[in-house]
Amino acid sequence: MNIIAMIPARYAASRFPGKLMQDLAGKPVILRTYEAAIATELFDDVYVVTDSALIYDTITTHGGKAMMSVEEHECGSDRIAEAVANMDIDIVVNVQGDEPFTDKESLASLIQVFQKDKGREIDLASLMTQITETEDIHSPNTVKVIVDQQNFALYFSRSVIPYPRAKDKTPTYYKHKGVYAFRKQAVIDFKHLPILPLEAAEKIEAIRYLEYGKKIKMVETQVTGIEIDTPEDLEKAKAAWK
């Protein structure tokens, strides 16, 4: 099974433009993330795929592998689909460029989903982590996921799901971490499928897979990491790096 990692890297992030080129302990965030993916030793290859010549040059001048996107893309899955279209691969893992603390254990658990899927019934796998903080549960910036008894995703939302109408019950809440592992065909299909109303309303790309009947296996992880979405997150990352 040929398994690669792709790190989609868009320069103009809406909440923190240029965040991937911010300094983290002497190196840009995107380079730290690339090195973390390499260090896992899980992949046959690791690439950064980007719309930015600055990010491309940063990776390649440090001996890494990078690709420039040809088309404009709305999301990371589309960017990856273009990049892998002509590659002879089986599985591609989407590593988020703003997560320099990417850990081996979580990524290995995603790969194992496909190694165990002898019937090739699973289209993609993704990570979730339990959340208990009220602020996170209610925040629209925290994407929540609900799953069935086999941990297949039922729905993703920025709203509170499940809604705690029964006051004597305490539901478990899971945050969806935007780390995916795809079968190649699943991500290729994604790029060519039109956006439907639920994805358009929530602005969550994982919903498109569900709307078209793809099966998403969720894997729980205890590793929360630090996603660098704001300048405050960057300061947390710098402190954690020390």
Rank of each mutant, 00 (worst) to 15 (best):
S157N: 01
R158P: 00
R158H: 09
R158D: 02
R158N: 13
S159A: 12
S159Y: 01
V160Q: 05
V160S: 01
V160K: 05
V160H: 01
V160P: 05
I161V: 14
I161Y: 02
I161E: 02
P162I: 09
P162W: 04
Y163Q: 04
Y163H: 05
P164C: 02
P164K: 01
R165W: 07
R165C: 03
R165H: 11
A166H: 14
K167H: 12
K167C: 03
D168M: 07
D168V: 07
D168C: 04
D168L: 13
K169N: 03
K169H: 10
K169M: 08
K169F: 04
K169V: 08
K169D: 03
K169A: 10
K169Y: 10
T170N: 09
T170L: 08
T170S: 14
P171I: 02
P171T: 06
P171N: 08
P171A: 08
T172G: 04
T172Y: 07
Y173C: 04
Y174K: 03
Y174S: 03
Y174C: 08
Y174I: 05
Y174T: 03
K175S: 14
K175F: 02
K175G: 01
H176T: 06
H176Y: 15
H176M: 14
H176D: 10
H176I: 06
H176R: 12
H176G: 10
K177H: 10
K177A: 08
K177G: 03
K177E: 14
G178I: 11
G178A: 14
G178E: 09
V179H: 11
V179D: 07
V179K: 06
V179E: 14
V179C: 13
Y180F: 15
Y180V: 03
Y180C: 11
Y180N: 13
A181S: 15
A181Y: 11
A181N: 14
F182G: 08
F182A: 05
R183K: 15
R183Q: 11
R183P: 12
R183W: 12
K184Y: 06
K184E: 10
K184C: 05
Q185A: 12
Q185M: 11
Q185R: 14
A186E: 10
A186Q: 09
V187T: 04
V187W: 03
I188Q: 08
I188E: 07
D189K: 07
D189R: 10
D189T: 08
F190Y: 15
F190W: 03
K191A: 15
K191E: 05
K191T: 01
K191P: 00
K191C: 01
H192P: 00
H192G: 00
L193W: 15
L193S: 09
L193E: 12
P194E: 09
I195F: 10
I195N: 11
I195S: 13
L196C: 00
L196P: 01
L198V: 06
L198S: 07
L198D: 07
L198Y: 08
E199S: 08
E199F: 09
